[in-house]
Amino acid sequence: MGTTLDVLVIEDEADIRDAVVGFLSQMGYSAAGVGSVEAAEAWFERHDAMVLVLDLGLPGESGLDWLQRRSDLRDKGIIIETAAGSESERITGRVAGADGYFVKPVNLVELSISVKNLLDRLQPGDQWQLDSLAWVLRSPAGKNVKLTASELALLECLAIRPGSIVERATIIRRLGADPDTYDIRRMEVMLRRLRVKIAEQLGVEAPISTVRATGYAFTAPLEWFGDQVV
């Protein structure tokens, strides 16, 4: 497989195809265009694309038939742009897997916004997210793990300065306990269970490091939102 582009435009009218590809390229996206389903099939033998902008009324196999035949295309973002805009046609397109539906003439700015939204959804970042309102930790792949009150309190302490060591005493106080009397083995058990839960439910290793006899650190980019009171 060769280059993966942001967008492949499948449109038989050359002036429309060139306009869409040109505008998306000006907006900073990598884009290419072909004129039929058959050309798209050949293009995909050597390349890939995250989002498809697909005309339904194509020569040869129609865009709709192609979507219905190729269920694997639903892993991509699919935007239909077509002259067919009746309610039943829009519903049929949505059922076939379309994420967006534009009736010609298409507003290119609006189309580019839909492309951006789909790419944001399809391209996972490298940042974890801690949601104090929902009590969840979200992996870069978008998967959530539900947290207990103690786990949330621990991660909130680490979220203040990701990558920096947080002393045990700070975490213990956040848990509502006294550092002088707290049994540190309780925290070690909690951390071990949290690491196992993250591995099992998110499929990745928890980016939480232990600094012997000192404290802990969250060693990956972390966005924290919600009730940020520590």
Results as ranks from 00 to 15, higher is better:
residue 88 S to T: 12
residue 88 S to I: 09
residue 88 S to K: 12
residue 89 E to H: 03
residue 91 I to E: 14
residue 91 I to S: 05
residue 92 T to K: 12
residue 92 T to V: 06
residue 92 T to I: 02
residue 93 G to E: 01
residue 93 G to L: 01
residue 94 R to L: 10
residue 94 R to F: 13
residue 94 R to A: 01
residue 97 G to S: 02
residue 98 A to I: 01
residue 99 D to W: 00
residue 100 G to N: 02
residue 100 G to I: 00
residue 101 Y to L: 02
residue 101 Y to R: 00
residue 102 F to H: 12
residue 102 F to M: 10
residue 102 F to Q: 08
residue 104 K to Q: 12
residue 106 V to I: 14
residue 106 V to C: 08
residue 106 V to T: 15
residue 106 V to F: 06
residue 106 V to A: 08
residue 107 N to E: 15
residue 107 N to M: 07
residue 107 N to W: 05
residue 108 L to I: 11
residue 109 V to T: 15
residue 110 E to W: 03
residue 111 L to K: 06
residue 111 L to A: 13
residue 111 L to G: 08
residue 112 S to Q: 08
residue 112 S to D: 08
residue 112 S to L: 07
residue 114 S to M: 02
residue 114 S to E: 15
residue 115 V to G: 03
residue 115 V to E: 07
residue 116 K to I: 03
residue 118 L to A: 11
residue 118 L to F: 02
residue 119 L to V: 12
residue 121 R to Y: 11
residue 121 R to Q: 13
residue 122 L to H: 02
residue 124 P to Q: 06
residue 124 P to W: 02
residue 125 G to T: 12
residue 125 G to D: 13
residue 126 D to L: 09
residue 126 D to G: 05
residue 127 Q to Y: 07
residue 127 Q to E: 15
residue 128 W to V: 07
residue 129 Q to W: 05
residue 129 Q to S: 12
residue 130 L to S: 10
residue 130 L to T: 11
residue 130 L to A: 05
residue 131 D to G: 09
residue 132 S to K: 07
residue 133 L to H: 10
residue 133 L to F: 06
residue 134 A to K: 11
residue 135 W to Q: 13
residue 135 W to S: 13
residue 136 V to K: 10
residue 136 V to A: 01
residue 137 L to C: 01
residue 137 L to S: 07
residue 138 R to Y: 02
residue 138 R to M: 13
residue 138 R to V: 14
residue 140 P to N: 09
residue 140 P to K: 04
residue 142 G to K: 05
residue 142 G to V: 06
residue 142 G to F: 04
residue 143 K to V: 07
residue 143 K to T: 13
residue 143 K to L: 13
residue 143 K to R: 13
residue 145 V to E: 08
residue 145 V to Q: 02
residue 145 V to C: 06
residue 145 V to G: 03
residue 146 K to I: 09
residue 148 T to C: 04
residue 148 T to A: 10
residue 150 S to F: 05
residue 150 S to I: 04
residue 150 S to G: 05
residue 152 L to T: 10
residue 154 L to P: 03
residue 156 E to C: 14
residue 157 C to P: 00
residue 158 L to D: 10
residue 158 L to W: 11
residue 159 A to W: 03
residue 159 A to G: 04
residue 160 I to D: 08
residue 162 P to D: 12
residue 162 P to S: 11
residue 162 P to Q: 10
residue 163 G to A: 09
residue 164 S to P: 00
residue 164 S to G: 03
residue 165 I to H: 00
residue 165 I to E: 07
residue 165 I to Y: 00
residue 167 E to A: 08
residue 168 R to A: 14
residue 168 R to C: 08
residue 169 A to S: 15
residue 169 A to T: 12
residue 170 T to Q: 13
residue 170 T to Y: 01
residue 171 I to S: 11
residue 174 R to S: 15
residue 175 L to A: 10
residue 176 G to C: 05
residue 177 A to N: 10
residue 177 A to C: 09
residue 178 D to A: 07
residue 179 P to G: 05
residue 180 D to Q: 14
residue 180 D to A: 15
residue 180 D to F: 04
residue 181 T to V: 13
residue 181 T to W: 10
residue 182 Y to P: 06
residue 183 D to Y: 04
residue 184 I to D: 09
residue 185 R to K: 15
residue 185 R to D: 14
residue 186 R to I: 15
residue 187 M to W: 00
residue 187 M to L: 15
residue 188 E to M: 04
residue 188 E to W: 01
residue 190 M to C: 01
residue 190 M to I: 08
